[in-house]
Amino acid sequence: MTIDAIEFDWVADLVRRETAIVLGAGKEYLVETRLTPLAYDAGEPCVEEWVRRVRSGGTPHQRRAIVEALTTNETSWFRDGPVFDVLRDTVLPGLLSARGAAPVRLWSAAASTGQEAYSLAMLCHELDPHRRAEIIGTDVASAVVGQAAGGCYDRLAISRGLTAQQRAAYFQESARGWRIDPSLQRHVSFRTLNLARPFDGLPRMDLVLLRNVLIYFDAPTRLDVLRRVRSVMAPGGWLLLGTAESANDSDLFVPERIGAVTLYRPR
């Protein structure tokens, strides 16, 4: 059974107000699928009825659970190999050289459960184990931010993108799974941040990874997010978007092609 139009519109409006993510017509099945576990946990086998209950008298916690269930948290280690090849071979060596003794600051702006942020930490360590890198991972979903900060991954997660050598070098096996080595984890921090709202407390960033996020926003929101990302970037910094995304519609960035990857410099 597909959720009816009234309940779907309410969910879509809630998600848009909280995150600026647009759930247009045709996303009813996604809403039904993502909210089914929440409805079952509440003792309601019908998503439509559960949403109706939350809409009429639900708690802030329930509304937040709906929002977080409908954010996309697909990620893996070193996702998109050519991207990380360019970061390893060109972008990060250039930043490390340009910043001298100052720390290099990197932002994984849709960090999900942390694999992208920790992948950046591994690259920095491989390039110069004695240099200080400060890596911040942010996500709108507090649940995945908590997982990322814990730095512990199960067998399935650890198998997606890591070599055996990387697992041996950067993880400690435990009864709960594989945990990021503390010597690497200390360079990475996580916080909850909504890209559709003002960025509070972020330092100037040398590299921003904002991948596969803008596709969920409408055009005015995309421009607004790019404008605020530009405001926290250091001179000479880089912006990296997803392969289906572009900053060419704004006058804020200049594209630069490196191999098969397009990155952006602040204008």
Rank of each mutant, 00 (worst) to 15 (best):
S119K: 04
S112Q: 11
Q62M: 07
V51F: 08
R53Q: 15
T59A: 10
N73K: 02
G94K: 03
R34Q: 11
V86Y: 05
P129E: 09
P60Q: 03
E74P: 02
S76P: 01
F84T: 07
G100H: 13
D85A: 10
G24Q: 02
A101T: 15
P45R: 04
R64Q: 15
P45L: 05
F78H: 05
V54N: 11
E49N: 06
A117G: 07
A101K: 14
D89Q: 14
G58H: 00
D89P: 00
E116F: 03
C46N: 15
L70H: 07
V31M: 02
L92H: 04
T75E: 05
R105E: 11
G57C: 12
A101W: 03
F78Y: 05
E48V: 12
T72W: 01
T36D: 11
A110Q: 06
M122A: 02
R99G: 07
E116M: 02
R53Y: 03
L95M: 09
A109M: 14
L35D: 06
N73R: 06
T59W: 02
W50P: 12
E126S: 08
A65L: 14
S56M: 13
R88N: 04
Q115W: 08
E44A: 11
W77G: 01
T72F: 00
E48F: 00
D80A: 00
R53S: 14
T71F: 02
L87Q: 01
A101F: 08
T59N: 06
D85T: 15
P37G: 07
Q62C: 12
P103Q: 02
S97I: 00
E74V: 10
S97H: 10
K27H: 09
V54D: 12
R105H: 14
T90M: 02
D128H: 03
E74Q: 05
L38Q: 12
H125N: 15
M122I: 09
C124W: 10
A65V: 12
P129R: 05
